[in-house]
Amino acid sequence: MVMLSSALLLATVCGRRMYPEGRIVGGEKSSFGKWPWQISLRQWRTSTYLHKCGAALLNENWAITAAHCVDNVPPSDLLLRLGEHDLSTESEPYLHQERRVQIVASHPQFDPRTFEYDLALLRFYEPVTFQPNILPVCVPHTDENFVGRTAYVTGWGRLYEDGPLPSILQEVSVPVINNSVCESMYRSAGYIEHIPHIFICAGWRRGGFDSCEGDSGGPMVIQREDKRFLLAGVISWGIGCAEPNQPGVYTRISEFRDWINQILQF
């Protein structure tokens, strides 16, 4: 029996959906197992762990999220729930798994003022077992800009600004836009924002579809030609939710692949 190296094994399973198809605004409920890398990142609050942000599964030991989700939070206060779909029920085709966080590796250049370098990797105490609703997403090998491609954003964030949190994972599709177009859209909405290449923007000029509070740290994925999904961005910031000319801004993962691969060695 040939043992595959873990990197090779990961390359063969990442970004695939095994399940048959069945801060998100203007989106729709997703079906069970459709986004198997999506994680609910929870933080301890007085008596229980509450959903705070999204995250995405990179391999059996590591997840990725936004640094601002875990800034100044001790790892012992964090819990990752993998394979979750509907927060209100326990009776799903496959159960979710929960993992405590051993290491939080935030990007050393993260700036909480500008949200630049808004990325953190989380190592679990015990590895997770892949199953149809728990599978890793692929990390880009090259720096494609993805402009004009359709990106899919998922999360349990608010359904609209100051609105309710859904119990079922939501999904929305948004087009990736050029950073300078993104800056000019914000300008026309009255905001002067500098959006360097370490960010990637996605959204509609007319608004109506976006990530929202509680989606931060979650994945923005793009489907490759071989039908597998690549992690193009991690939800970082926006102004309001789904407002016209105010697209969502994501940490561009292709810019950080060397840093990610370096940390994953641990």
Rank of each mutant, 00 (worst) to 15 (best):
L80T: 06
G54S: 05
L58S: 05
R23T: 14
S40P: 03
T129I: 15
A67D: 06
Y117A: 13
G83Q: 05
E116V: 09
A66P: 14
D71T: 07
L41E: 00
V101N: 05
Q131Y: 04
R100C: 07
Q109E: 15
L119R: 00
F115Y: 15
S91M: 12
H85I: 00
H107W: 01
M18D: 13
Q38K: 01
L135E: 01
Y117P: 01
A55N: 03
Y117M: 04
W62N: 02
W37Y: 00
P20E: 14
P75A: 14
W44Y: 15
L50E: 13
R81V: 12
L135P: 00
N61A: 09
N133C: 09
S31C: 12
M18L: 15
T129D: 13
E60Y: 07
L119C: 04
G54F: 04
R100D: 08
N72D: 14
P93Y: 02
S40F: 01
D71M: 12
T48K: 11
R113E: 15
Y94K: 06
P93K: 04
H68F: 07
V128F: 00
R45V: 15
D71Q: 14
I24Q: 01
Q131T: 15
D86C: 04
A55K: 09
L57V: 15
S30M: 06
R81D: 05
T114Y: 01
C69H: 08
L95M: 09
L122R: 03
L95I: 11
D111K: 07
A56P: 02
Y94R: 05
A56K: 06
C14T: 10
T89A: 02
E28Y: 09
E60V: 10
G33E: 03
F110Y: 13
W62T: 03
E60A: 14
W44K: 13
P20I: 12
V70I: 07
Q131M: 12
D111T: 06
R23A: 11
Y117G: 07
T142G: 08
R123A: 07
T89H: 03
A66Y: 05
A55V: 12
Y19W: 11
R42C: 08
Q38Y: 02
L78F: 10
G15Y: 00
R99I: 02
Q131A: 14
G27M: 10
Y49H: 15
H85W: 14
N59E: 01
L121N: 02
G15V: 08
S40Y: 01
V139I: 15
W35R: 04
S91Y: 12
L78T: 10
W37V: 02
Y117I: 00
K34Y: 04
F124D: 05
L78N: 07
G22D: 08
P108C: 10
E28I: 14
S88E: 09
P136I: 11
